[in-house]
Simulated assay, not measured.
Amino acid sequence: MDFSYSDEQRMLSDSLEKLFTAHNTAAGGGTAAQADKLWQACAETGLIGLTVPEDHGGLAGSSADVMVAAIQIGRHAVQAPFLSTAVAGAGALRLAGSDAQQAQYLPALAEGALKVACAFGEPDARYDLADVDTRAAAQGDGYVLNGAKSVVFGGDDAGLLIVSARAPDTERHDQSGLSLYLVDADADGVERTAYALTDGRGAADITFNDVKLPATALLGAQGGGYDIIEAVSDLAAAAICAEALGALEKVIGLTKEYLGTRRQFGKTLGEFQVLQHHLADMVLEYEHMKSLVYEAGALAGSDDTVARQQAVSAAKVVVAEEGRRICQQGMQMHGGIGLTEEFQLGQFVKRVAVADFAFGDADHHIARYGGHMARAAAAAFGETEGHHG
């Protein structure tokens, strides 16, 4: 896919390059004070409110703009909860929120005062977004929430949780029975176990024990949450693919630099033809991946569900498969130093590893893409049969 940055996107990319370099994000997460300082700096540049509408203090950016930002985030191994708040959280509020809900939450989100996390996945559900056993029972004018969510990106310090749940009388895998609810992360009955993912970013497992919610907690239509959940998950999946693309650019760059400086047998490693070929393979795989990630970024916000899902699934599969090969080649050519915790190559390899499994692994997305192809083939066959009949 031919994708060129607009003038505004180049400015966004350049400003984030300067911001992350100044904060030395590639050195690691840093202290809590440093993380807060970076978060506020991101808000001041407009990054947190990138997709928030202008009348709520944002920049009204597109999914392609998110991709531009996410590539820089991956290049600099930024651990701030951009994905959970600015992509998934803002996406859910933008797509399903009422005017009152958007006015209440989006301005605070855009200015960096509110962190949001989407709690969709459940233990043992794998990547089936309809496999939800969390229940929201009507009680008076509100609801009572019970259930558990796992591996919630940004759930470790989010102030607002967007939770998928179903009515007690609906079946566990019923897509039409799902709704979304806004939950104060500090409400009575909310318990979270926070931890760091492989790449250092925060996540949490969260349980809800008789959490009382007001009527205004319902986000979107009752029982109509599944399409929003899928759309938000695709926004997040496309963004994490873009992060991986930025991280892989660094893996290749670090490998090329190492081959050009490390000497053995009187010459640099980059002068050995076999290593030149391995590096060329890495670059070719990266360029192939780049086109698919760009397409996913461009279509992640599309109303064409089939085109969106196919583009996102294709990007996820290639990031998982070719991204893993690029990282393996890079680490192998670095030798022992590539395996050390102190060397920065590992930060970017871990970033790609998390992107591999987040929001659906390769098997899940191959099955989803294949399902679309099978339905298209069946429809075409049916039309042909009808024509001949």
Rank of each mutant, 00 (worst) to 15 (best):
V251M: 11
L160Q: 03
D199I: 05
A217F: 04
D205K: 11
E385K: 15
H365S: 04
Q102G: 11
I229C: 08
H76T: 03
S302V: 08
R166T: 13
P81D: 04
T207F: 00
A314C: 02
Y195M: 13
L213P: 05
Q9L: 14
D169Y: 02
R201S: 12
G112T: 13
F3D: 00
G253C: 06
G202T: 09
T384V: 15
S150K: 14
A35F: 10
L12C: 08
F272N: 07
I366K: 13
K37D: 14
D65M: 10
S179P: 10
V78C: 10
Y5P: 01
F357D: 06
V293A: 09
T193F: 11
E230A: 14
A239C: 15
G200V: 07
L259K: 05
I48T: 11
D304R: 10
T340F: 15
A108C: 06
G338K: 13
R368Y: 05
G202H: 11
D227C: 03
G58N: 12
V319T: 12
D304C: 13
I206K: 06
A80M: 14
E321I: 07
V312I: 08
Y286N: 00
T216M: 07
H23G: 01
L245V: 14
L275V: 12
G270K: 07
L180C: 02
K350D: 03
V293G: 03
L299Q: 12
L245W: 01
T216S: 10
L219H: 02
A117P: 09
I229M: 09
E243W: 01
A43G: 10
D156M: 10
A138Q: 09
L83W: 03
A125L: 08
G266C: 13
T193Y: 09
L59Q: 13
G260R: 07
A380M: 14
V151W: 05
D363Y: 00
A43L: 07
A244E: 10
F357H: 05
A377G: 01
D36Q: 13
G301C: 08
L259P: 08
T31F: 00
